[in-house]
Simulated scan of single mutants.
Amino acid sequence: MAIVAPELGRHSWPVMATHDALSARLGELLGGALIDVIEHAGETTAVVQREALVPAITALRDAADLKFNQLTDICGADYPDRAERFEIVIHLLSMTHNLRLRVKLSTDGRAPVPSLTGLYPNAGWYERETWDCYGVMFTGNPDMRRILTDYGFEGHPFRKDFPLTGHVELRWSEEHKRVVYEPVKLAQDFRSFDFLSPWEGTDYVLPGDEKATGK
């Protein structure tokens, strides 16, 4: 089954794969590794089993009619009310077919995620970012160190329950001519999370919010 990007001749940039044939092809290619295929706001997301991530991504990369041979991003999201609170989101690009695909999986934070460094060397950077910010471990990553936070940083700052006080920040002190640590307090007394919009208390629709409502 050939997968062809819709109206390919009208676009010079990669488009999200949204055609009907893709869902059937993903089911055929991934089999039991595939949990669900979600079509929303003109974008396609394949939800896969965590343990089957590497063979699933390998199949997507090597299938001649898909050839998702570039990894463009790995990131995380935290939903504290879920049993498996962390979503790992992987974005793939097919230069051959001018398509993009999103792949998702979930973990409770204790169960590690298989590393994709054996398939895409640039996965190492993204996996380190995800570990640093969310605390999700990737098995098979040869360099699982922090990459964004300061030396000696404790905790994972993108978790929704990360404390806002009691930590320190690092800065250069002109007075002491060295790097110093100082107590930090973020000016946010109460936290509630609206996953449809990053802004609260507004009476207008911000650009991008239409994706959450499907309008």
Results as ranks from 00 to 15, higher is better:
1 M>I: 05
3 I>S: 09
4 V>L: 15
5 A>C: 15
5 A>R: 14
14 P>V: 02
18 T>C: 09
22 L>R: 12
26 L>I: 04
28 E>V: 06
28 E>T: 12
30 L>V: 04
33 A>I: 02
33 A>P: 03
34 L>Q: 06
36 D>Q: 14
37 V>Y: 10
37 V>A: 13
38 I>Q: 12
44 T>N: 09
45 T>H: 11
48 V>G: 09
55 P>N: 14
57 I>M: 04
59 A>Y: 06
59 A>T: 00
60 L>G: 08
62 D>I: 00
62 D>F: 00
63 A>Q: 13
65 D>G: 09
69 N>G: 13
70 Q>I: 00
73 D>W: 09
75 C>N: 09
76 G>L: 11
76 G>K: 05
78 D>E: 05
79 Y>P: 01
80 P>Q: 06
81 D>R: 10
82 R>L: 09
84 E>R: 14
84 E>P: 07
85 R>H: 06
86 F>A: 14
86 F>P: 01
89 V>A: 14
91 H>F: 03
93 L>N: 05
96 T>F: 11
97 H>S: 03
99 L>W: 07
99 L>T: 02
100 R>L: 04
101 L>I: 01
102 R>Y: 09
103 V>Q: 02
105 L>R: 11
105 L>P: 09
107 T>S: 12
108 D>S: 11
109 G>S: 07
109 G>K: 07
111 A>Y: 14
116 L>I: 01
116 L>A: 10
117 T>W: 09
117 T>P: 04
119 L>G: 00
121 P>G: 15
122 N>R: 12
123 A>R: 07
125 W>T: 04
127 E>L: 03
127 E>P: 02
128 R>S: 11
129 E>V: 03
133 C>V: 04
137 M>C: 15
138 F>P: 02
140 G>V: 01
142 P>W: 05
152 G>M: 06
154 E>A: 11
154 E>I: 06
156 H>N: 12
157 P>L: 03
157 P>D: 04
161 D>Q: 08
161 D>P: 03
165 T>A: 12
167 H>W: 10
167 H>V: 03
167 H>F: 12
167 H>I: 05
170 L>A: 15
173 S>K: 12
175 E>V: 06
176 H>D: 15
180 V>W: 10
180 V>M: 07
184 V>M: 13
185 K>V: 02
187 A>V: 02
187 A>P: 04
189 D>G: 03
191 R>C: 09
195 F>W: 06
196 L>N: 15
196 L>A: 14
197 S>V: 05
198 P>A: 14
199 W>R: 06
199 W>K: 13
199 W>L: 07
200 E>V: 02
201 G>K: 15
203 D>P: 01
203 D>N: 12
204 Y>Q: 10
204 Y>D: 05
207 P>K: 05
210 E>Y: 15
212 A>L: 07
212 A>D: 11
